[in-house]
Write a protein that binds this DNA or RNA. Structure first.
Lengths: 238, 238
DNA sequence: TACAGAAACTTCACGCCGTATAGTCTCCTC
DNA sequence: GAGGAGACTATACGGCGTGAAGTTTCTGTA
């Protein structure tokens, strides 16, 4: 018979082991990069056999998918919190807070960033259906919120490109859209371009393609953010 | 004794084999992603033993480094050509041509793009000293040229951030700088931000983080480019 | 309390990988 | 035609993910 009852000793142990596997995997990734996530290394660290992990995760890719979900969630939590903490009355400040939180998280968790946005793990193939859907959804909502906050000021500067709703309906933004009824198609396009700016600089920085060219990425990002906010018709804070 | 004489049969065969190894490696990468670059797979394809490749490349990483150099060079050639072909008198047109060439190449060679700008191959560690120096230098020069062409129009819009030469001297841009004597530190910062914009959107697109959000990245990139050019104080062409 | 069965874990095995070492064959040069 | 350099193979080692089968440990029920 299945155990069924909640709080059973077995279930507790199982949950702890599962957590330890993930913890060790993240530790290995932090110290040795995404390549270091191997079942054998994890098992070694835990004093187990590699095959024992198959009792908790069907395949290595399954484990990686889980990790991505959790890391993605941590990112979403970070940027959401930064957004929520900034006063709602000042769109520029909120956008800057969101962007800084995003960059800060990425620099503090470069392996996590790679795991989410790069070629993560040798041979890993993201599953079709529900990979990191919730966190991706939340980050996406955050981006849309940026554009929504700026749109009243930036709209007249960016109402180009002849975008249609059909350009976005299939994607994540299509699902996020109802939450921002005042955002027209051009506003959604603006959101994506904002996302491109922020992700672009941060990605260059995390992957080290900036280090070879400038000593002070901090100042550069600050300037980018200032210009970005200005281009939205807002006055940058601090 | 070493052969010494040029045009020797042995040398010719050797050069051909070297070329074939690289050709097969690129083919494997194109069909199976960067993961597919394995010495054994290459050798299998060529009817050889994996160890035979060690006669041509010291290690697998050596082979990958060579591939990166060549792919990087192809990219540099592409964007350089696009830049040179566009009339020098119209900065906006040149910038758009460069950017479109960059995106076009990236979309046509997604694995190559990953090889250069992403986490390329499982376990691969780029060598310290002279990895892809020439092509990187050329792409960097291209970026600086973009900023240089736009600076007379964009300067007054972007002369912020209090940048110093010391922010760039150590990097690639420091070495490129003499070629653009009229570009001030803020102009170099602008170049890096331009690069961030272009790289950012293209990278999102290549890695598929855009596909989940919009159906028509083409239109989006077009719009981004238009706004970018406009933000430089230029009038976008076509 | 004894026992059946589920769950956790190990052992063994297979085929992949990079790579080190030693040996073989072929062709060029003197 | 002999010597040697260069191209390539055979074999082996350790690491990887993963499948199948076996062993131990725990747990709910009779």
């Amino acid at each position: 018979m299945t155990v069924g009852t909640t709080g059973g000793r077995r279930e507790r142990l199982r949950a702890e082991t599962t957590a330890e596997i993930k913890r060790v995997a993240l530790k290995l990734m932090a110290s040795g990069g995404p390549d270091a996530i191997t079942l054998r290394a994890i098992a070694r660290e835990m004093g187990m056999t590699a095959n024992a992990i198959y009792g908790y995760f069907a395949t290595r890719d399954d484990l990686v998918t889980t990790l991505i979900n959790e890391v993605y969630t941590a990112l979403a939590d970070t940027v959401d919190a930064a957004w929520a903490q900034a006063p709602a009355g000042r769109p520029a400040g909120r956008i800057q807070a969101w962007a800084r939180a995003f960059r800060g998280w990425a620099l503090a968790n470069p392996e996590g960033f790679r795991l989410i946005y790069g070629d993560p793990v040798p041979g890993y193939q993201a599953p079709e259906g529900g990979a990191a859907p919730d966190a991706a959804y939340r980050v996406c909502t955050g981006i849309a919120a940026l554009a929504d906050a700026a749109w009243p000021h930036a709209g007249h500067l960016h109402a180009h490109g002849d975008f249609q709703w059909s350009d976005f309906d299939d994607g994540l933004l299509g699902k996020v859209r109802p939450a921002f009824p005042d955002l027209p198609p051009a506003g959604v396009a603006l959101a994506l371009r904002l996302w491109g700016h922020l992700h672009g600089l941060v990605s260059l920085e995390v992957y080290g393609h900036l280090r070879t060219q400038t000593v002070d990425p901090d100042k550069l990002f600050q300037e980018e953010l200032t210009q970005l906010v200005r281009s939205l018709g807002l006055e940058p804070g601090d």
